[in-house]
Computed example of a mutant assay.
Amino acid sequence: MAFLKNNFNFLLDKATSNLRLEPDWPTIIQICDLIRQGDVQPKYAVAAIKKKLASGNPHVAMFSLQVLESCVKNCGSLIHEEVGTKGYMELLRETVKTTTHENVKNKVLELLQTWAFAFRNSPKYRAVQDTVNIMKAEGYKFPTLKESDAMFSADTAPEWADGECCHRCRVLFGMVQRKHHCRACGQVFCGQCSSKSCTLPKFGIEREVRVCEACYEKVNK
């Protein structure tokens, strides 16, 4: 367990380094995978990202928000239940109030607006909508909801399935035949049946990742 946490922290440090010039999407995807596979508990992951957000360096804070955004879009209810709480909403609201960096403030407002729209029909995450309503009453201006973010409301990433054989060709997994997950449908496949790759903007994945044959054809229609 300690090794897995150390690995997660190493990846998070890498993804949020103030020396970066742009988001490290391969590393961000690895972070999401660790959470989805159950290698790192969502509570631990969200707490670690929270520490990065508290950094006085605006680059670290911005990259931490991008990691958080991808985790929310790509890890489903595992992360939603940690982020969509009154306590976490208060943290983000306080960040908007206290940050001196306009880009960090705007990114938090963007995320809050997106999540409020995405969870508008989920009573469990009522705290998100309540926080946005309170901040609007306080005079905060929220950005226009982007089309890709609006898609997220209906298209949250599927939970990862497990199995002893490929979902498509039924070959058994073993030492030689490794299992792979399709990032689009969550099913498990052999390497040959999941050899395609493409971007999945609706899940916050803007770099090409592994998908199965059927999902590849669906995405590229």
Rank of each mutant, 00 (worst) to 15 (best):
Q113P: 03
L109S: 02
S55P: 06
K221M: 11
N74Q: 08
L53Q: 00
A54I: 01
R170P: 09
T27S: 13
Q187F: 15
S55M: 04
L4M: 10
M62P: 02
T99M: 05
V219E: 05
P201I: 10
P42Q: 04
Y88A: 10
C32S: 13
A61T: 01
A150F: 11
D13K: 14
K107V: 07
V96W: 00
C190N: 04
K146W: 03
T95D: 00
E110I: 10
A61C: 02
N57I: 08
Q30Y: 03
L53K: 00
I31H: 01
R170E: 10
P26T: 08
E208S: 15
N103I: 03
C71I: 10
D13G: 12
F203R: 04
T144C: 07
V211A: 04
K196M: 12
A116Q: 04
E217K: 13
T99K: 02
Q129R: 15
T16Q: 02
D155Y: 15
I28K: 03
G174N: 14
G174C: 09
S17C: 13
I31T: 03
L21N: 10
E69K: 15
T144Y: 11
L53C: 09
N103E: 01
M62I: 13
Y88D: 06
N74D: 07
V96F: 00
E90Q: 11
N6Y: 06
P26K: 05
R36M: 10
D155S: 13
A54C: 05
A45R: 05
M1H: 02
V67N: 00
G76A: 13
I28H: 00
F173R: 01
